[in-house]
Design a protein around this nucleic acid. Structure first.
Length: 304
DNA sequence: GGAATAACCTGGATGC
DNA sequence: TGCATCCAGGTTATTC
């Protein structure tokens, strides 16, 4: 499932292909891919045609492509195409005229000043992902909105999302304060994108395993040392997954060229129910949690 | 206002 | 072989 590393791989793949590109046409093939867009599919198509993309930016699991207010001046974006991949969304780069992808929802035809014409395809099996045109707002801390652009702006739909742990402007002290005042289990807080973004079920399980913390430990009971260890493990897990191209279990996550990542081979807890813990040998257990699953080692990760 | 839960959705896996 | 059911999970609206 696309979490921070997977979305970052997609962003990095899109960046050289779309930065500076002019959108020449838009084809919305399935309106369900516009659930975050306030207008009609026709509005989406006509509003984007003729606009110039100035960057590919990411915060957490959100990806956006800022659009120049004036096609001749890329320094002043006022809106962006906001993308969330949901559970199965893909952003693919194809040559113009390429046959439709399975589950293709939206196709943008762009003209890049150096690379020429290109198709940017949004495909999504489970239709939890979506695209939208959204206004850009100034960031409250005046830091860059996300990775991929130095501009201190963020789409309105992303403004409520906290910075991710790999963001240079991530406020670790604020994250510690957030944990200190909530009685919820630590995994629930990790999945709350307003506390810290980019962490989903896979990397929450992996980070908690690495930090030896039980997922249901009340966040407020964690000592500062444990929170610092957890943050360090979150960052390490995300960095390692990013270096390995993300986690792919099936065809649900691929990069812009349709290739899978390798981090699934490095998982220690997630999806390893019944297999020995790599640290102590005790079988990894799976429990139901928030309509999904938690995987942990009952010996290494004990409830405090 | 904080916390917990349900709903949305599709296709592969599993069981009968 | 075919059908029914379960399961995966990110976000958000709703409920408590």
């Amino acid at each position: 499932m696309p979490e921070l590393p997977e979305v970052e791989v997609v962003r990095a793949g899109l960046e050289p292909a779309v930065t500076g590109a002019l959108i020449t046409s838009v084809d919305v093939r399935d309106a369900r891919a516009l659930t975050r867009h306030s207008g009609t599919p026709e509005h989406f198509e006509t509003e984007l045609t003729g606009r110039r993309i100035v960057a590919a930016v990411r915060r957490g699991k959100f990806l956006w492509m800022p659009l120049a207010a004036d096609a001749a001046d890329p320094s002043t974006p006022d809106e962006a195409i906001v993308t969330h991949l949901g559970m199965s969304g893909q952003m693919l780069l194809r040559v113009p005229g390429a046959p439709p992808e399975r589950h293709e929802r939206i196709r943008l035809e762009v003209e890049h000043p150096e690379h020429g014409p290109l198709s940017v395809v949004f495909a999504d099996q489970r239709t939890f992902g979506s695209l939208a045109i959204d206004a850009l707002l100034a960031t409250p801390d005046r830091a860059a909105g996300g990775r991929g652009s130095a501009l201190p702006v963020v789409p309105t739909q992303v403004a409520h999302i906290g910075r991710d742990p790999l963001d240079p402007a991530f406020d670790a002290a604020a994250f510690r304060r957030r944990l200190a005042r909530t009685s919820s289990g630590i995994k629930r807080v990790l999945l709350d994108q307003t506390a810290a973004s980019g962490i989903g079920n896979i990397y929450a399980d992996e980070s908690l395993w690495a930090a030896r913390i039980h997922p249901e430990t009340a966040a407020s009971t964690l000592p500062t040392r444990a929170v610092n260890r957890l943050l360090a493990e979150v960052q390490a897990v995300l960095e390692k997954a990013l270096a390995e191209g993300g986690t792919s279990f099936d065809a649900q996550y691929v990069n812009v060229n349709g290739q899978a990542g390798y981090f699934a081979h490095s998982l220690n807890a997630y999806g390893r129910t019944g297999q020995p813990c790599p640290r102590c040998g005790r079988p990894i257990v799976r429990v139901s949690f928030m309509n999904r699953s938690s995987h942990f080692c009952p010996r290494c990760q004990r409830v405090r």
